[in-house]
Design a protein around this nucleic acid. Structure first.
Lengths: 120, 120
DNA sequence: TCCTTGGATAGATGTTTGTCTAAGTAATGG
DNA sequence: CCATTACTTAGACAAACATCTATCCAAGGA
C-alpha cells in the first residue's frame, strides 16, 4: 500500500445503513463521500476516470469532455481528491487521475440492503 | 407495485460507474440521489428507517433521536421523500416512514467496481 | 366545539457551493 | 532565459441549502 487514504475514506466503512442505525460520527464521515458525489459533473468525472482503459486519465481529456473552464474542472477534481475517491499524479507535463476502487466498493457495501440479491 | 416511484429513482439505474462513462442526463438523475444522502442528518434518518424492525418508523421517534427542531426533521424527510428513497404514510395521528429498498440497491449497484468480490 | 398533540409549510437568515476571471506554478522547447 | 502549454490557486459572486421561528392543518379526546 504505497499511499495512505484520507481519514474520510478510512472511516466511512462498516455495516450497511439498513443493518443498524448509523452513529452520528459515521454519518458525518459518510456524508462527506456522498457530498463529493452529489454533483453531476463530479459523477461524470468519476465515471470517466473509473471506466477508462488503463485505469487512469489525463486531466486534459477530462476537460475536453465538458463545457466548463479548466479551473472549474480542477476544482471538482480537488473535491474528489480530498474525499479520497481519486488520486492524481503528475508525470512530466501532464497530470493523471485514477480512482480508489476500495472506497467505491465500501460505499457500495454500505448501501446494500439486507435481502438484496447478489448483483449479476 | 402499488406505488409509482419518482422519475429520479426510476432513471438512476443502469450500469456501474466504472463500466462506461455516465451520460450527462444519467449523471443529473444520479446526483439527485447522492445529494439527498449528502447530509449527516439525512443519512442517519435513512439508516434509522431502514434498520428499524418492522420496516417503518414513526416521525415522533425520529425527531427524538436528534437535537434538531421538528420542522428541520420534517424538511430532511421531505428531501428524502422527493428523491424517492423513502415514503411516508399517515395512519391516524402519526406518520410512518419506510424506505424503498430497490432504490438503495440500485445505487449500490452503480457503485460496484468491476472486479469487486461479491459482498458477504 | 374547543383544546391538545403530531407533523407540515412558509419565510427569514447565515453558510456552503458551483462557476467564472485573473494570476500563479511546473515542465518543455526554442 | 523567455515563451508556451498544462494545471492549480485565489478571490468574487449568485444560487442552493440547513436551520430556525411562527403559523397552519389533521386527528383525537374532553
Amino acid at each position: 500500500m504505497p499511499k495512505q487514504l484520507p481519514i474520510v475514506a478510512m472511516d466511512a466503512c462498516c455495516s450497511p445503513l439498513a443493518r443498524e442505525p448509523l452513529s452520528a460520527e459515521h454519518a458525518v464521515e459518510l456524508s462527506k463521500l456522498f457530498k463529493a458525489m452529489a454533483d453531476p459533473v463530479r459523477l461524470r468525472l468519476l465515471s470517466l476516470i473509473a471506466s477508462h482503459a488503463g485505469g487512469e486519465v489525463c486531466v486534459c481529456d477530462l476537460t475536453d469532455a465538458f463545457d466548463l473552464t479548466g479551473p472549474t474542472i480542477s476544482h471538482h477534481l480537488k473535491v474528489l481528491r480530498e474525499s479520497g475517491l481519486i488520486t492524481g499524479e503528475r508525470r512530466g507535463t501532464w497530470v493523471y487521475y485514477r480512482v480508489h476502487p476500495e472506497v467505491l466498493a465500501r460505499l457500495s457495501a454500505v448501501l446494500v440492503t439486507g435481502d438484496m440479491p447478489v448483483p449479476a
